[in-house]
Each structure stands twice: as C-alpha cells, then as structure tokens.
C-alpha cells in the first residue's frame, strides 16, 4: 500500500522561502488533481486534504477491525468444517484490510498506536453497520451479500482515489471483497433452497440487514457536508445517493436469483432520472448508532479493548526478545 513516508535525501540546494515553497506546492497539487493523477505521501498537500483523508482512511480501517466481530462470533458455530474454514479466511481478510488501511493512514504522518488508542477509547468512528447484532447463521449470508456488497459498491470507485496509498490499498481490498460477497450469496441461496424454516431464516436476515446496508453509503447528498469537497479532490468519485441507487438496482436483480424479497415495496426504476429509487430510511437511527447508541456499540468496543489488553504481553515479549537479540548481536560484533 503505502509507498511510505520515506526519508528523502536532498539532492540539491534549493534557495527559496517557505511561502514560495507552499505556493509551489499548491500549484503542483492543483495540477496533479486537474490531471486526475495521484498525490503521493511526500508531496505537498493542503492541510484540509490531509485531514479529510486521515478521517476517511482511519474510519475505514477501524470499520474493518471492528467488522471482524459479528462474523468471528459465528466461527465456532458454523454448520460445517468447510463453512468454518471459509469464515476464518474472511475474518482474516478483514484484519488484513484494516492493516492495509492503517498503513495508508500512517503514510500521512499519523501514528498507528494513536489510531488504535482512539478506537479503544471510543473517540474514533467506524461504520455504523457493525453495531448491529448477527443473530442467526443466515446473518453470515446477509452480511456477505448485502454488507460486503455495499462495501464493494462504495470501494470500487475508491481504487481511483487521488491519494496513491489509499487507492492501492483499495485495489487489494476490492479483489478480496468479491470472495466475501459471493460466499454470502451462496449461504443465502443454500438456505433459500432448504427447508421452509431455513428459507424463512434467510428472509429474516435479509429483512434486518437491508436498511442498515443502504445506510452504509452515508447520509443523503444534501445532508453530507464533506462529499462535495471530497469529490472536487477526486477522493470520492460518486455521491452517496448515486452509489446507493446503483446498489439497489444490483440487489433487485440478485434477490430474484435467491428466491427472496427485499423488505421495501417502494423500490422502482425512475425512467426520467434513470435511477433506482427506494423507500425512506431511518436517518435518526443512523445518527443514533453513529453516536454510539446502537444495539452493539458498547459490546464491540469492550471486545476490542479486551483483545488489545489480552495481546499486550505478546507485543511486549516480542519487542523485548528483538531488543535482546540485537544486543547479543552487537556484543558479538564488538
């Protein structure tokens, strides 16, 4: 991901004041954005651009890390060894995605441990979707199909984000997410073709995850203050509503193959705007969950904190061992 913020070696003496350097930097930044090229870590960038990226990338990283939890809970309860192995691979991928993204954030000068601290202190945001409980095995299907499906829809355009390390992280993530969505689809398809009770379980999971998945795209465009600037900076390529509408269109097709229905009788294709429309979403609920008052917020954070504390001795032991080894090597050399 991050061609990291490496130390660069000055190759020449440049005369110039910091003001001219900043003006040059802004001019270079504007040119790169206008050419739809990529900004790299050592380039000059406006402070607000850096801040926006840090906010978005760290939120995204935290979402991947917290996102391991609803599914990890089902690893020991998976109905077969094959499903267990698949679920473990998927959860491991989510951890990997979190790490790619933390690297990208670090390339902007953000300390990784500070990001972790902010998350476990409850000061950092992550996607509201992971604060909903995964109640049945069918939820593994619905999460893969709807939640990862929405994530892919959101993330494919981010592969072209103007910040190089972020785009590169997204390329890797998107490749892996398609496995996630397909395995979810298969779980639902199998249940849908099973007993009436299994089919009902699949339908119930789709009913519960549909609206939260649609809200993953973020607030409606006229209530999304950062979107416009992010689009001007080529970080975002499409608006929240645009992506949500595309997603609904895809799900309408796919739910038929599943033999299930979407819990929304207002879905229709608007011939004039050529866009898919859906029923109203409960944005008050969205803001409540985002503010930390969702069904599982405290449980998720508590679990994350526990895992961090329980792993402390491993981090300390590994660091102490490395320290000792390097001292032994030095003594030997001396």
């Amino acid at each position: 991901m991050a061609a990291q913020n490496l130390q660069s070696v000055p190759v020449e003496l440049t005369a110039g004041t910091s003001e001219t350097a900043e003006a040059d930097g802004q001019a270079n930044f504007d040119r790169v954005i206008a050419e739809d090229s990529r900004i790299e870590p050592k380039d000059w960038m406006p402070p607000a651009y850096r801040k926006t990226l840090l906010r978005q990338i760290s939120q995204h990283a935290h979402s991947e890390i917290i996102g391991m939890q609803p599914e990890a809970n089902w690893i020991s309860r998976a109905p077969s060894l094959k499903r267990k192995a698949i679920l473990m691979a998927k959860v491991q991928d989510e951890a990997g995605h979190g790490l790619y993204l933390y690297s990208a954030a670090e390339s902007l000068g953000q300390n990784r441990d500070e990001m972790t601290d902010a998350l476990i202190a409850g000061k950092a945001r992550y996607s509201s979707i992971f604060n909903y409980p995964a109640l049945t095995w069918a939820d593994m299907g619905a999460i893969g199909w709807l939640v990862d499906g929405a994530a892919i829809c959101n993330q494919v355009p981010l592969c072209r984000a103007s910040y190089g390390p972020y785009g590169r992280a997204m390329v890797r993530i998107c490749k892996e997410e398609s496995f996630h969505q397909r395995q979810g689809f298969e779980i639902l398809l199998e249940l849908s073709n099973g007993t009436p009770a299994q089919k009902q379980m699949a339908q119930d999971a789709v009913n519960r995850w549909y609206a939260p998945a649609l809200m993953m795209f973020g607030p409606p465009d006229d209530d999304s203050p950062n979107s416009k600037q992010s689009m001007a900076w080529n970080i975002k390529r499409f608006s929240n509503d645009e992506l949500r509408s595309r997603f609904v269109g895809m799900m309408v097709e796919q739910v038929r193959v599943l033999g299930l229905t979407l819990p929304d009788d207002q879905i229709r294709f608007n011939e004039d705007s050529k866009k898919w429309e859906h029923g109203p979403l409960d944005w008050d609920e969205f803001h409540e969950v985002l503010a930390g008052r969702g069904p599982c917020n405290s449980q998720r954070l508590e679990r994350r904190r526990e895992a961090h504390d329980d792993g402390a001795w491993v981090r300390e032991a590994a660091a102490a061992y490395a320290q000792k080894q390097s001292m032994t090597t030095k003594e030997y050399a001396a």
Binding site: Q7, S8, V9, E40
Partner: peptide, 12 residues
C-alpha cells in the same frame, strides 16, 4: 526497515 530506505526528494 523503512528508515533504511533512502528516497529521492519529490520537491527536486
């Protein structure tokens, strides 16, 4: 190790 890599300066 990241700081063992020397990189050219983008400004120049």
């Amino acid at each position: 190790p990241a700081d063992a890599i020397a990189a050219s300066d983008p400004d120049s």
